[in-house]
Design a protein around this nucleic acid. Sequence first.
RNA 1: GGGCGGUUGCUGAAAUUGGUAGACAGGGCGGACUUAGGAUCCGUUGGCGCAAGCCAUGAGAGUUCGAGUCUCUCACCGCCCACCA
Length: 830
Amino acid sequence: MSEQKGQVEPTHPAESSLARVRPPRYDFATFEAKWRERWEREKLYQVDLYHARRPYYNLMMFPYPSAEGLHVGNMYSYVGSDIHGRWMAMQGYDVFEPMGFDAFGIHSENFAIQRGIHPRVLTARNVERFREQQLKRIGNRFDWSHEVHTTDPRYYRWTQWIFLQLFKNGLAERKTAPVNWCPKDKTVLADEQVIDGHCERCGTLVERRWLEQWFLKLTRYAQKLLDNLEWLDWSERVKMLQRNWIGRSEGLEFAIEIDGMPDVRVQVYTTRPDTIFGMTFVALAPLHPLIPQITTKTQLADVAAYQQTANRLHTGTEHTMTGVFTGAYALHPLTGERIPIWIADFVLESYGAGAVMGVPAHDERDMAFVKAMGLPVRTVIVQPGSAHPAEEPQEAFVQPGVLINSAGYSGMTSAQAAGALFTWFEECGKGHRVAKYRLRDWLISRQRYWGPPIPIIYCQEHGAVPVPEEQLPVLLPDVENWMPTGTGASPLAAIESFVHTTCPICGHAARRETDVSDNFLDSAWYFLRYFSHDDETQPWDPDLLRKWLPVDMYIGGAEHSVLHLMYARFLTRSLHDLGHLEFEEPFKRFRANGMITKDGAKISKSKGNIVNPDSYITRFGTDVFRVYLMFMGPYQAGGDFSDHGIGGVVRFLDRVWSLVTQHAQNASAQAPQGEERRVIHRLIKRVTEDLATLKYNTAVAALMGYLNSLETRSTLTREELRTLLMLLAPMAPYITEELWQKLKHPGQNHSIHATSWPSFDAEAIGAETLILPIQINGRVRGRIEVAHDTPEAEIKSQALQVPQVQSLLATQKVTRMIYVPERLVNIVTA
RNA sequence: GGGCGGUUGCUGAAAUUGGUAGACAGGGCGGACUUAGGAUCCGUUGGCGCAAGCCAUGAGAGUUCGAGUCUCUCACCGCCCACCA
C-alpha cells in the first residue's frame, strides 16, 4: 500500500516492532552462543568461595517458576542487577551472583490442580524451562554451581530446622486466633496476603474464621525491625513502606472499671488521651473475650445474634456502622460517670486492646457510630481562639486544640493535657504510656499439600512436640491424593501413613501436624543457603557466612517491600538473637527497581499482557535487548513496556560494531590528547557515576553520544576504542567481548570482563575552559568563553564587551554585576 | 480517608541539584543514493513568527539577579495501606 508522503502515522502503532525492525547486521547468534559456552566451560562466573579476596555478594530475587515463564519485568530486574555485578567485578571484586528457584506454594499448586498434574512434575518442568531457555540467555553472570531449590528435601529440611529453632525459643506458637480463610483455596492466609478483603492468589472474598494455627512472633520484633531501618542503606521508599507496615503509634492504655463488677477491667487504648472527657461510650470488638462476662441477661440474646452477623471480614469499602448494647456500664476513670458499653464491628480485636473509648466529637468513626446508634456527643476540644463549640456538632473535630469541659484540664492545649493525663494515669496506676504496632504475627499454617510439612507431633500426653532434628526432613509424601480435600483440612491429613507416628518423648501413638508452612518462609532464608546448597550436615557454613554476609547489594521489585523483605529481616534477626547468625540484618544495601507495566497495567497472566523476552532475544540478541531495557528510562522508576525504540539500540550496537572493526587495525597506539583526552575522561566519569547510582539510561545515552563523536573522526586511538568497549561491557557483555578480542594485542589473552574498569583523571576534566552565560536582568544575552582560572575582574570586563550586551547598555545603566564563580555573569540595570 | 511518588516536545526521556530547558533515542518532515533494503546517508524537528524576537516544564501565586528544580494553594495520575482508636 503506497501512502501519500506527509501523512502522519499513528504515534502508538498497535502491533509489535518485532516484525518491522531489522535485526543487527553482526552475527550475534554465533558469538553470543560461543561466549556463553566458553564462559560456562571456563567457569568464568564461579568464585572460590573460601579464598575470594574481595568478596561481593550480588543478590537478586530468585524467581517463582510459573507456567507463564519469565517475563520482561523479571528480566529487567535481573539485568539491572547483573550490570551492577559485572561492574563490581571489573572493579576487582570477587562477585558471587547465584540463582535458584522458589517453587513451593499455592500458586504452583493451584496451577497443578487446574492441569491435573502433580505439582512436583510441573515444577520440574517449569524450572527446566526457566533455567535453560530463559535465565541462561539473558546474559547474566550467574554461578549455576550453587543453584538452590526450596522444594528439594535437602533445602526444606533446613526450613523445618529453622522453624524448630523458633519453636524451641518461643518464637513460634500455636494459638487460636481469628484468621483469614479463603473458601476457594481452602486455606488460611496471612494478613499480608489479603488484598482488599480478597485472596491475593485467587481473588475470592476472604472469610473470617476462629482457628488454631501456627504463628511466628513477628510482633516481638516490631521495634527492632523499625529501629534498624534508621541505618540500612535501602531505597528510601521501601523503608517508608516498612515503617508504615510496622505502624508504630504511641498512646495511653488504661483500665476501665465496670459498674457493679469490681473484678472486671476493660483495657482501652487511645492515641488521644486529651479527648478523654468527651467519652460517651465504650466499644468492644465483636469477639472481645470479656463480652460473655459483662453482658447483662436482658441483652444476651441480642449480643449473641450480633456476634453471629458481625463475624465477617471488613472489606475496606464497607463503612456501615453496626453494634449492639451489652447492658453494662463503664465508670469513667476521671469523673466516675456511667458510660454504656457497646459491641461494634468497627473495632478490631487484633489492634490495640480490642476496645476503644468512644469520643464522637473528636473521632470520625466514633461520630459515625453515635449517629447510627443515637448516642450523645460531647465536645471537649475546640480550635484555639474559638470560645464555644457548635451546639450539635455534625462532624468530628479531629485536630488538636484547646480543652473545654474537662475539669481541671480545661484551658490546656491538647499536648499539655496529654502529658498531664499520662502522668495522672501512671501515678494512680490506672494506665500507662505504650507503643502499639499495626504489625501482626506471621501466620504460617497452610492447609495445603505443596509446601514443607510443619515438623511437629501431637501427643496426647505431651502436647505439641518438635520432631527431633536428626529426624528431619519430615518428607512431603509423594502421593497421588494431593488435591484439596474440600474439608478445610490439609490433604496430608488423609494420608494415614503420614499422620500416624509416635511421640518422640514417650513413644506412644501420636499424630503429625498436617499443615505445611507458608511459601514466604521458604524464601525468607534462601540467600543463606547458596554457599552450602548441597551440605547435608548444616543449614549454612558459618565461615562462609562470615566472609560473604550480609548481602552487599540486593536488587528486586518494590512489590516485595513488606512481605519478603520483612520476613527475611525478621528471620535473620531472630536467628541472630538465638546465636545462629553473626549479623542482625541480611541486606546491607537494597535497591528497588521500577515496575514494568504493559499498556499501563501490571504484567500478569490474568490480565493477559505477559511480554516474554524470548522472542526479542532470539531476533535481536541478548545485548540489544539488555541495552534496550536499560535505555527505556530510569531503572528505579520502571515504565511501560513498548518495543518502539528498539531499532535505535540495534543501530547503536551495529555502529559500535562497524566502528571498532573498521579501526581495529589502523587505530593509533598513542594516547588521546587535548580535547579528545578531555572528552574521554569526562565520559568515564559520567558512566562511572551513572552505574554507581543505577542510572543506566543516561549511561547508555552518554555512550551513544560518544560514539556519535567518534564517528565524525577519521583516525582514532586504541584507547578510545577500548574505553568505549569497557564502559559498554557490563550492559552488552557479548558484543564487547567479541570486539575486544578483535582489538587486542597478540599475546593479550584475557576477557574484557576480567579487565579493570577505567579510571578517570580529574585533572584532565578540570582543565577545560568555561563557557559563561551572560545575563541581563535574568535574560541570557550572550556567552563568553574564558579559561578556568581567569580572575573575576577580567571576566566582568569581557562580559561587558559582548556585542549584544553593548547594544543593550547603550540605553541602560549598570547598577550591579554579579559573577557566580564558574557559573555565569549577571548584569542588573536600572 | 491516610502515606509516598509523580505531571517536561508527537513518544521514551535529559537537565552538572538554583544557572543556555528538551541531552540521548524513537517517530515525523524534506532531500540524496540508487533503485526495492525489515535499508543507509544528509538536513530538519517544542510553539508562534519572514525575521529580530516572543512564549513554553499540569494551573495559579511567592522567594530570588535568575525557578523544571525551593515555598504555598489547586487540579489530575500512579503505587502502597486502609474502620489501626
